[in-house]
Nucleic acid binder design. Structure first.
Lengths: 210, 210
DNA sequence: AAGCGTTTAAAACGTATGTTTGAATTTTAC
DNA sequence: GTAAAATTCAAACATACGTTTTAAACGCTT
């Protein structure tokens, strides 16, 4: 390689800028300036802006889905509770290079963008690349919520996803707001530990579980 | 007026395109072509693209916040339940020109965009224009959840907001997915009636309420 | 029906974008 | 140590954008 690691520097700059400004609002010139590389380097290393966007996601999701797949191998062979399935998610996040709360926030913001600014090509890339692991997880969700109708389960999963993505997307500014207004000193960990019972309670609403 | 109502046609086209493609991805040429008006008409009637974006929101939010303020006058003078406060929201939505489920989906998608693609100017416009009514509602939320710590209340409200905005932002495609995969024929009304107990249950999680 | 403010129309302006080019430079391999 | 491959660089390309301009058409008041 020529100097240090141009492709990596581009990915770092791109993910930071994407997560705070979105895909369309971030220009290749923004990215290459922040990365300290030449403008043409993006198209040389990644081919196009679209491919760069996919590469940013892949750098997070490929290690995550590998870790997640391993965890699924385990839990598929035992009975679980809804809380355990939720915990598996945050556990895998922490095991796949997202233990840093700052990185975690960035990742969730990117996830939110993938939904709200889904550019078609991203949707296809994500489902074709990571759809299978997601399906396996959903099978487990079905197993732990036999009381729910398929329709209830479908919508509650999306409600949960929304609560998580939306909140974690702006967890920085929300934390700042909360700590300022309430005089507290919470961090991302605290928010996650508040989120989990909220999600579990919503998922099991009206299900007599004792 | 010259022919029909150019400004209205621009707003109609803009809200439709914004809600499906986002602000930055929607050009004035897209809008004016869809509206069947001249390109310059946008800058003539609204001054700029930013002002057009604000006008799209104002057309929904001004009648809504007026209706909402009236409803608040009433419920502020009585005791309420969390479910009643939630119902007040959807009730007001239906009373302020959003009874049409299609319009409702568009509105929620715009609301989601306001958060995810918040362009600064939009944030300021919304809080300065509608912040007071929102504060009054939050006061009522405080009253009906005395068991929650301020921190719990803060985060659960945002979890709820996330579940609602995220789900309703893509309610069309989610409904299509659900109806296809599950062989059902649900509509937006059904989703809302699933969402409400989910939100109420999450809000009151671990609170013994009987 | 004339005059005048309002609205529409076509065209161009200046700027920013993603991408490509071709030469210079660095790294790799023998 | 040198040839070949890989990478960087400055510059230009083509395109799309938001906005402005100028003139024409319209609608209302008198």
């Amino acid at each position: 390689m020529a100097q240090k690691d141009t492709a990596q520097r581009i990915l770092d700059a791109a993910e930071a800028l994407f997560s705070e400004k979105g895909f369309a609002e971030t220009s290749l010139r923004n990215i290459t300036t922040k990365a300290g590389v030449n403008l043409a380097a993006v198209n040389y290393h990644f081919g196009s802006k679209k491919s760069l966007i996919q590469a940013v996601f892949a750098r997070y999701l490929t290690p995550f889905s590998e870790q997640f797949s391993e965890q699924l191998d385990i839990i598929e062979q035992r009975e679980n509770t809804p809380e355990q399935l939720l915990k598996l998610l945050v556990l895998t996040l922490n095991k796949s290079g997202l233990e840093n709360p700052e990185k975690f926030g960035v990742f969730m913001r990117l996830l939110g963008l993938a939904y709200s600014q889904g550019q078609g090509h991203l949707r296809k890339f994500l489902t074709s690349e990571y759809g299978e692991v997601f399906s396996r997880y959903m099978k487990e969700v079905n197993r732990v919520t036999p009381e729910l109708t398929p329709m209830e389960r479908f919508w509650r999963i999306h409600f949960m996803l929304g609560a998580a993505v939306f909140t974690m997307s702006s967890v920085d500014s929300l934390l700042a707001m909360a700590n300022h207004d309430l005089g507290t000193e919470s961090d991302v960990k605290d928010v996650v530990s508040q989120l989990m019972p909220f999600l579990a309670s919503g998922l099991m609403s009206n299900v007599k579980n004792d």
